[in-house]
Amino acid sequence: MADGIEVTSLTLLGRAQANDEDAWHQVVHLYGPLVEKWCRRYGLSEEDAADVFQETFKTVARHIGNFVPGRSVASFRSWLKTIVRTRTIDYLRKSKRHVDAAGGTAAQMRISDLPDPLAEDSEDETEADDALVVHRAMDLIQGEFDPRNWSAFEQVALKGRAATEVAAELDVTPQTIRQANYRIRRRLRLVLEDLVE
């Protein structure tokens, strides 16, 4: 836990909850691809997925203020996933009304085939989901950092190279690399805190 209380470094979730428009943009930026991925995994066509996608974020926009991490669902991710699933079911039910009895059964079967969001995902799946969000988060903040520092960060954190080695390559001191690494990780953390566990 960070020592002390910082009003200024509110987390992204906190800012989105306080109706901060930028924060909302970022939340959507971070989670858009993941939501889309889930929609598609539920077997929705591109067109249907687009509808469910919008309905999902409308729901999120309305209720994000009441979301408390760790209360009823473990994380923002599982909260979001539940919403995607509910909206998908609503969508399928709605479309069911317009088709005949046989189609009704088909829709039923589709609904009943939807994976349960609260059922444990495989670790691999969760990791892939997280990775999707983390990559988006990196896109978001990359511009705030010196390109050289950024590449150092990528070399160390993502490629697993030693700071000293990278430092020699970029012609800076290892200490600079360490500090840059910390600043990027700190920034990333503030973006993702409360969102990714």
């Binding site: 990791e127 892939a128 983390v134 954190a157 700071a163």
Partner: peptide
């Protein structure tokens, strides 16, 4: 330096699951 090369948590997922 050792810790930084072996990230835990979210960065680990970004590392094992490239874009």
């Amino acid at each position: 330096d050792e810790l930084e090369r072996r990230p835990e948590g979210v960065l680990a997922s970004a590392r094992t699951k490239p874009r």
